[in-house]
Amino acid sequence: MIARRLGALALAALALAPGLAMARQVVWRFDNLARIGHLAPKVLGHPRVERSAVGKAVAFDGQNDALILPRHPLAGAARFTAEAVFRPDGGAFEQRWLHLASDDVPGRPPGETRMLFEIRVVGASWYLDTFVKGAGYSQVLVDPARLHPLGRWYHVAQTYDGTTYRSYVNGVLEGEARVAFAPQGPGSSSVGMRRNGVNHFHGAIALARFTTAALAPKAFLPAPSPR
Rank of each mutant, 00 (worst) to 15 (best):
H72A: 10
V132L: 13
I119N: 05
V105H: 09
Y127G: 04
L16Q: 14
A10W: 07
A8E: 11
R79K: 14
D61Q: 11
L100V: 08
A17D: 09
P73A: 05
L16N: 01
A21R: 06
L67E: 10
D89S: 14
I119G: 00
A78F: 09
A57E: 02
H46G: 10
A21E: 14
H99E: 05
N32Y: 09
L11D: 11
A13D: 14
D129H: 15
F30A: 01
A21Y: 02
K42D: 12
R24G: 09
P106L: 06
G45W: 04
G134K: 02
G62R: 11
Y127L: 01
V27Y: 08
P109L: 13
D31W: 00
E94C: 03
P70T: 02
P109D: 09
H46T: 13
V121K: 03
A59F: 07
G123V: 09
L98F: 08
V122E: 14
H46Q: 13
F80R: 03
V122R: 15
A34R: 12
F93H: 15
A13L: 08
A21D: 15
R35L: 14
P106Y: 07
R51K: 12
I36T: 00
V54Y: 01
G37L: 06
L14A: 13
D31G: 00
R24K: 15
A124Q: 15
A34H: 14
L14Y: 07
G90S: 02
W28T: 03
H72S: 05
V121Y: 04
F80Y: 13
A17P: 01
L128R: 00
L14S: 06
W28Q: 04
G37H: 02
I119R: 01
G55V: 00
W28S: 02
Q25T: 12
P73I: 09
D31E: 04
A84P: 00
V58L: 00
Q25W: 08
L128H: 00
D89K: 11
L116M: 10
D31V: 06
M22C: 12
L74H: 02
P70S: 02
F30N: 00
V49D: 04
Q95Y: 08
